[in-house]
Design a protein around this nucleic acid. Structure first.
Lengths: 235, 235
DNA sequence: CCAAAAGTGTTTGCAGTACACCCATGT
DNA sequence: ACATGGGTGTACTGCAAACACTTTTGG
């Protein structure tokens, strides 16, 4: 039996994180400038190697922290990618994770560290290896997830307005939703607490700020409801 | 840059398949008797090692074929498992897949080969490593998937009856559904073709056999609808 | 006073659910 | 004849969708 183990080829295991962010208007992706070996403008997902004594989840969490200083955010395994030629240097199996953060809260932390930069989903640069494929699958997964789970709040800052969440969902799905129906739906979750303050500066009237009821959110984070119209439209 | 590659530790990569089967009555799982090194009654998922020149999907497909003679069936990546201690012999990252087959069509092929055996989901033997955890996640995934995608048909034989599909869905979700509503829903997909024959022998009246409209099925296999009542009940 | 965004209610239709009786046949 | 499982129809309800006007206030 142990013989069987000895004969097998070992293989590098990498972790790559697709980090989604939202700045109140647009859905963004955090990328890092690819190291010196390539002089052209290639960007990469946040990635790193699996170490001997950590689990995949731990490794993804660690790498995210090392590169951004961010921890404790939504981070979920997406898929493993193992095409034999996906990394031309040496065969590597990559386990991809996707993460959700709000851009505002972490902006400074992130940009300083590792030449990380937020890119609009609609305007991505040239990407390393199969990272574009990973992103494609991640956005599909995010759409799937956000359609039924209140995961969108992970992308919002602490205080946010209903029109902002609407913007977020429109950005995720690339389509427009009726604001009346949407607002009713979101409020009917009971996860939002209306604050006394208003967001000023953006619109003349100003929109009421809301906060997440974190207690309820924890309990209901795996709950299940329709957040978007016509979920049948999903692939 | 290449230095970075050199420094990293390589690691074994295994594939494990959770193979669901349905015999018309019960949901089953295909397991293999664990090799000689353990004399006690430990069973294992179908598994094998990743080879240097194959992708994860290819490897999963190959291993499934080697162990069962079955190919071309529904086989989808589930999750990667990478706890450092999950395999006590040597650290191994396992990429799990789940597969759906109908027991009847492949019964002989399977049982002959590798001491494989179908087990009732409710009566599983002692399992290797973290295989029980994998199975738990696989059944969750199957429930999730089958709730919205017509994937249940993958588990049915070529010809089947409505009561059989009902049985299947009841087995998957461990609860009972109203047969009138269920039958209406399933037929409303337009994926079924009613045959002239009846299934005889089981009930006195006999139930009409149906076949899958494979053309439509291919087109709609990623379509989206509710197959079960109260999908909110899902985790 | 005007422009721009926020906020709010009602009607309509469909899909999901609950529910009960007749049918066909082998024994 | 009867027991067993197969097959069907209807009424109700609740949620989702469509839809338009009023409010606020900065400029």
């Amino acid at each position: 039996m142990l013989e069987l183990y000895k004969q097998q080829t070992r293989c590098l295991v990498a972790l790559d994180s697709i980090i989604f962010g939202f700045d109140g208007e647009e859905l963004k992706l955090l990328l890092v400038k690819r190291g010196v070996q390539t002089d052209h403008d290639t960007w990469s997902l946040m990635g790193g190697w699996l170490k001997p004594n950590e689990s995949l989840d731990q490794a993804a969490e660690r790498i995210l922290f090392e590169l951004t200083g961010v921890s404790g955010i939504f981070l979920e395994q997406l898929n493993a990618f193992g095409d034999p030629n996906r990394d031309p240097v040496e065969r590597t199996v990559a386990v991809a994770y996707y993460a959700l953060v709000n851009v505002k809260d972490y902006e400074t932390k992130i940009s300083d560290t590792h030449h990380a930069q937020w890119f609009s989903m609609h305007d991505l640069p040239e990407l390393l290896f199969d990272h574009r494929e990973m992103i494609k699958i991640a956005i599909e997964r995010l759409r799937y997830k956000a359609a039924f789970h209140p995961v969108g709040f992970e992308l919002m800052p602490e205080k946010f307005t209903i029109p902002q969440i609407l913007n977020l969902y429109e950005a995720i799905y690339g389509s427009n939703f009726d604001k009346r129906n949407f607002s009713r739906k979101i409020l009917s979750t009971g996860l939002l607490v209306k604050l006394k303050e208003k967001q000023k500066g953006f619109s003349k009237k100003g929109a009421f700020l809301y906060a997440l009821d974190t207690e309820k959110y924890k309990k209901h984070s795996d709950s299940f409801m329709n957040f978007i119209p016509n979920p049948e439209g999903l692939v």
